[in-house]
């Protein structure tokens, strides 16, 4: 029963990882851009919501109405000023430039807010600790469930958007071959700016959940980037449903690791990531294989 509870809590934790990985997976898998400032942008959104809640009394959910469009604009601007120029410089440059950007964001946040840890938990009432009791041993937190639901809606929504809408097709086509989409009258720059805006908008949402479920500080971005990356890689780059699966594998591994020893939480997560890499070397993509087995649809 204890084991079952740990697995359930791990799955729910995985919902958060899937959520934080959503924007990274979208940029990495679809746009083929690696954004090392991903975690820092999530923390930036968390601070924006914190300021709105703390200074103006705006509830975090209402605050998202302001912060999500603002982050979308930042994302589009980032694409225009940094990512696009970097991508032209080859594989190397985006990694270097976005890492530089993350250092700038982290330290500016530190300059503004100091080393104190903050949380949005006090501003969401009993949602932060309320739960549904399933049995005597197992309870499901309402916030965790909301996180999972948000992750599913966001990942599924983006997947549908990419597959079914004209703009989604344009985004995929632009990632595939920006010069050719130019020939058929699509502005690759505009499409990429929209896509980056969308990706960073999801980062804003994940930043809200980061801040509601726990505490954060100006340097919390690095770990969020690593978790997002691990979930993306375990799930198989390029598939958003895979990312949900990757997040859950990561969450369950951490939850089980924590039951072995206090340090086991992080160690098990990183080991799960390395195991997934190792698996990929010999058997191909874990997420992809699993989908093939489960769905059994000719690719």
């Amino acid at each position: 029963m204890i084991l079952l509870n740990q697995i359930i809590q791990g799955v729910l934790l995985g919902g958060y990882y899937a959520l934080i990985a959503c924007g990274l997976s979208f940029m990495f898998g679809v746009m083929r851009i690696i954004n090392l400032a991903h975690g820092s942008l999530a923390v930036l959104s968390a601070y924006a919501l914190y300021v709105l809640a703390d200074s103006y009394g705006v509830s975090p959910f209402l605050g998202l109405v302001v912060v999500v469009p603002a982050m979308a604009l930042i994302g589009a601007g980032l694409q225009r000023t940094v990512l696009e120029r970097s991508a032209r410089g080859g594989l190397l440059v985006p990694v270097l430039s976005t890492f530089g950007l993350s250092i700038v964001i982290d330290n500016l946040l530190f300059e503004k807010f100091g080393a104190d840890t903050r949380s949005l938990a006090p501003y969401i009432g009993d949602l932060s600790y309320d739960s549904w009791a399933i049995t005597d041993d197992i309870a499901i937190g309402k916030l965790a469930a909301l996180t999972m639901a948000t992750a599913i809606v966001l990942l599924g929504g983006i997947q549908l958007f990419l597959n079914r809408t004209p703009l989604g097709r344009m985004i995929r086509a632009t990632a595939e071959d920006p010069d050719t989409v130019g020939l058929v009258g699509v502005s690759a720059e505009r499409v990429n700016a929209i896509a980056a805006g969308l990706a960073i908008a999801t980062v804003a949402i994940s930043g809200a959940f980061l801040a509601m479920r726990a505490t954060f500080n100006p340097y919390a971005g690095a770990l969020q980037l690593i978790f997002a990356f691990e979930a993306t890689v375990i799930g198989g780059a390029g598939s958003l449903w895979g990312t949900l699966f990757g997040g859950i594998v990561l969450g369950v591994a951490q939850s089980l690791g924590a039951s072995v020893s206090p340090q086991g939480f992080f160690i098990a997560g990183h080991l799960a990531f390395l195991a997934a890499l190792f698996f990929r070397l010999f058997f191909g993509d874990l997420g992809l294989n699993l989908r093939r087995v489960l769905v059994r649809r000719p690719q």
Partner: peptide, 24 residues
Amino acid sequence: IMLRLKGGEFAIGMWVVAELAHLL
């Protein structure tokens, strides 16, 4: 293991290795 990764995957993958080394 790590040299099978390309580009950004190698970059952050090495970061994960560093975190793991730290914890160990």
